[in-house]
């Protein structure tokens, strides 16, 4: 168990790529922190710096109060789960779990106690003597987690551990990881590009963009008050509609449509509306958003209507029994409008 502190951490690769810039983070003991962002934004780089697999070219990382910049990965008291599991193919599951402990010169009885305990928790006892080759993807995933658990580390590091699984298994393992982390109470940093995974797992989210922190907050904070158009379009599915608008007083004008804002604003701005915050109104209603339907996606519980409003691509989520038409008139729920600066995309107010 340990808190982790990152002080203006940066990474410049030998080739000059500036992958991570000025990251400040305080991760509390026992917290489940998720790093989320599009591919190439530097999530893995940051995680690998915490693990000690990449050198830290700027700033300082401390685990449990100890600065670890110069500490070998094995001495950082961390455990990592890799995307491709990285199990030793020539060793049985048991040997895979025990290898790190053996290297620490731990007593045999203690090793087998921990391996059995991990096998029980993860329900992999039945194939402890198999080689990884003889396991399914989900089972390998469990073994990789087992290898992390037996070390009883002060921090778990996950690098997209579920992306090699099929959709159903991914949801199941997601739930198991969440429960496991809650039970063990081990500080965890989890990297993913999947916003749904991020939302469901995190105590706190860190949205990264181009190597910099875009926003930090609980999943609900980030969902409700995205700090920028980038976060707004990345978090939440279906994605938030963003369109150019003109503000007068506290009202945003999009063509003939008007949307009430939370805060006063003037001039050009970007208006954000989540598809699920819209409702259909009587056709021709004064000030309503006028959606020209292009196609409809049936999700069962909802139907997603895609089209354009004033030439901007726009989607809205309707109840599954909503009437469909070539044209829909929509109004935003009260308090649903997000306002962003037209130039830098930062949230207004």
């Amino acid at each position: 168990m340990a808190a982790i502190t990152l002080k203006s951490v940066g990474k410049t690769y030998a080739g000059g790529v500036n992958a991570v810039r000025g990251i400040d983070l305080d991760i509390a003991d026992g917290e489940f922190l998720v790093l989320v962002g599009p591919s190439g934004c530097g999530k893995s780089t940051l995680l690998r710096m915490v693990a000690g697999l990449e050198t830290i070219t700027d700033g300082e990382i401390a685990i449990g109060g100890r600065v670890v910049n110069e500490v070998e990965p094995a001495e950082r008291d961390i455990a990592m789960v890799f995307q491709n599991y990285a199990l030793y193919p020539h060793m049985s599951v048991r040997q895979n779990l025990a290898y790190g402990l053996k290297n620490r010169k731990m007593a045999k009885e203690e090793i087998s106690r921990r391996v059995d305990e991990a096998a029980r928790i993860l329900e992999i006892g039945a194939f402890l003597d198999r080689k990884p080759k003889a396991l399914s993807g989900g089972q390998r995933q469990r073994v990789a987690m087992g290898r992390a658990i037996v070390r009883e580390p002060s921090c778990f590091l996950f690098d997209e551990p579920l992306s090699n699984l099929d959709a159903k298994l991914r949801v199941q393992m997601r739930g198991e990881i969440k429960q496991l982390q809650a039970r063990l109470g081990t500080t965890s940093i989890y990297v993913t590009h999947d916003q749904l995974e991020a939302m469901t797992l995190a105590h706190r989210l860190v949205v990264l963009n181009g190597g910099k922190v875009e926003q930090v907050g609980t999943p609900l904070e980030v969902y409700r008050r995205p700090a920028s158009t980038f976060v707004a379009s990345f978090i939440g599915s279906p994605a938030m509609n963003l369109m150019p608008a003109r503000a007068e007083g506290a009202v945003a004008h999009v063509g003939a449509a008007r949307v009430q804002l939370e805060i006063p604003a003037e001039g050009a701005m970007t208006l954000g509306l989540r598809p699920e915050d819209l409702r259909a109104v009587v056709p021709g209603t004064e000030g309503a958003l006028h959606l020209k339907t292009a196609y409809v996606e049936e999700l069962g519980a909802q139907r997603l209507v895609h089209g354009t409003v004033e030439g901007t691509p726009f989607g809205c989520a309707m109840p599954s029994d909503a009437a469909l038409a070539d044209e829909l008139y929509l109004a935003a729920e009260p308090g649903a409008a997000h306002a962003f600066d037209a130039q830098d995309g930062r949230r207004l107010g």
Binding site: A51, G52, L53, E72, P73, A74, I78, A79, M80, F82, Q83, N84, A86, L87, Y88, P89, H90, Y99, G100, N103, R104, R147
Partner: peptide, 29 residues
Amino acid sequence: IPDELMEAARIDGAGPLKFFWDILLPMSR
């Protein structure tokens, strides 16, 4: 052999010689 294997071994406390002896050699059998 994927790099992650070497990294996993590093985290498992295997130095260069141990990695060679315990992982690379058996894998190249």
